[in-house]
């Protein structure tokens, strides 16, 4: 049996999947204040520019490069009636799959990757943001906290979507 098909810690992966599905549900339901509770106090959220999916915030222009306080500010903005691109809120539907645990760090943190398709419907149009998540999760009892969350888009431009006004 090759490494590719070797049995993994399916119990751990299953717990992580439950966590990611629950997170996706919070975002689809626009329960953003509850979503914020999933993050550590020093968490980061990033989306690289579409022409540079491997871009890092220290060297490249990103689409999103949020410290924890910026994540808070983003949520406050999206909860406002004056974030006009998202008022009224769009409808979103997230499909999260291909979840893999890439590494367990000595600190106990877990490097996790997953694929996503996030559909956004509004104003008579539906678009799909497709890509890959990279997470660093901190075990917290039976569940996890998010220390790092990155969404790398496959789309080469946002020509079809216009903007990135939702949280991916």
């Amino acid at each position: 049996m090759t490494a590719v098909t070797a049995p993994r810690d399916t119990a751990l992966r299953s717990r992580i999947e439950d966590f990611l599905y629950a997170e996706a549900a919070l975002l689809d339901e626009w329960r953003l204040d509850d979503w914020l509770k999933l993050f550590t106090l020093d968490a980061r959220y990033e989306v690289p520019s579409t022409d540079r999916p491997d871009g890092r915030p220290a060297t490249a222009l990103m689409l999103v490069s949020d410290t924890r306080s910026m994540i808070d500010a983003r949520v406050k903005r999206l909860n406002s009636r004056k974030a006009y691109r998202e008022f009224p809120w769009s409808r979103t539907r997230r499909l999260v799959g291909n979840v893999r645990v890439l590494d367990a760090l000595p600190s106990g943190e877990l490097e996790v990757t997953a694929n996503f398709a996030v559909y956004r419907s509004r104003g008579g149009r539906t678009h799909c943001y497709a890509g890959r998540y990279a997470y660093r999760l901190v075990p917290d009892g039976e569940t996890f906290l998010i220390a790092f969350r990155r969404a790398e888009l496959d789309q080469e431009t946002l020509d079809e979507h216009g903007t990135l006004s939702i949280i991916l």
Binding site: S49, T50, R52, G55, A60, L61, E156, T163
Partner: peptide, 11 residues
């Protein structure tokens, strides 16, 4: 120019 471009659109 810093690496990384914002390519977006409007209808």
């Amino acid at each position: 120019i810093v690496g990384g471009a914002h390519r977006y659109s409007a209808k």
